[in-house]
Simulated assay, not measured.
Amino acid sequence: MEMRLDATLAEVLPVVQQGIMDHTTYFGIRTLKNPLDAWVYQEIIVETRPNVIVEIGNFHGGHLLALAHLCDAMGHGRVIGVDQSHHLVPPVVRDHPRVTLIEGDACETFAQVQRLIAADEQVLLIEDSAHTFDNTLQVLRQYALLVQPGGYFIVEDSICHHGLEVGPKPGPYEAIEAFLNENPWFESDRSREHFLITWNPRGYLRKRVPTSGVSRPE
Rank of each mutant, 00 (worst) to 15 (best):
N58W: 00
N58A: 10
N58L: 02
N58S: 14
F59D: 12
F59N: 13
F59K: 09
H60Y: 13
H60W: 11
G61Y: 04
G61S: 12
G61F: 08
G61D: 03
G61K: 05
G61V: 13
G61Q: 07
G62Q: 04
G62H: 06
G62A: 13
G62T: 15
H63K: 03
H63G: 04
L64H: 03
L64G: 05
L64S: 01
L64N: 03
L64E: 09
L65R: 01
L65F: 08
L65G: 01
A66G: 06
A66Q: 13
A66I: 02
L67F: 08
L67K: 01
L67S: 04
L67Q: 02
L67E: 07
A68S: 11
A68I: 11
A68L: 08
A68V: 07
H69V: 15
H69N: 11
H69E: 14
L70K: 04
L70W: 09
C71K: 00
C71E: 06
C71S: 08
C71R: 02
D72G: 01
D72L: 04
D72E: 15
A73W: 02
A73M: 06
A73L: 09
A73F: 05
A73S: 13
M74V: 03
M74S: 08
M74Y: 01
M74H: 02
M74A: 06
M74K: 01
G75Q: 03
G75P: 05
H76S: 09
H76A: 09
H76G: 00
H76N: 05
H76F: 10
H76V: 04
G77V: 11
G77S: 10
G77Q: 00
R78C: 01
R78W: 03
R78I: 08
R78H: 07
V79I: 15
V79G: 04
I80R: 00
I80Y: 00
I80W: 01
I80V: 13
V82W: 02
V82A: 05
V82Q: 03
V82C: 06
V82L: 14
V82R: 01
D83R: 09
D83M: 11
D83E: 11
D83W: 06
Q84A: 12
Q84E: 13
Q84P: 00
S85P: 01
S85D: 15
S85Q: 10
S85N: 12
S85H: 10
H86G: 11
H86F: 09
H86E: 12
H86Y: 07
H86C: 12
H87I: 15
L88Q: 13
L88P: 00
L88A: 14
V89R: 05
V89Y: 04
V89S: 08
V89W: 05
V89H: 07
V89L: 11
V89M: 11
P90C: 12
P90V: 15
P90F: 13
P90A: 14
V92N: 02
V92W: 00
V93L: 10
V93F: 08
V93T: 10
V93H: 02
R94K: 15
R94Y: 07
D95W: 01
D95S: 12
D95I: 08
D95G: 11
D95Q: 14
H96M: 10
H96P: 04
H96Q: 09
H96Y: 05
H96A: 10
H96R: 09
H96I: 14
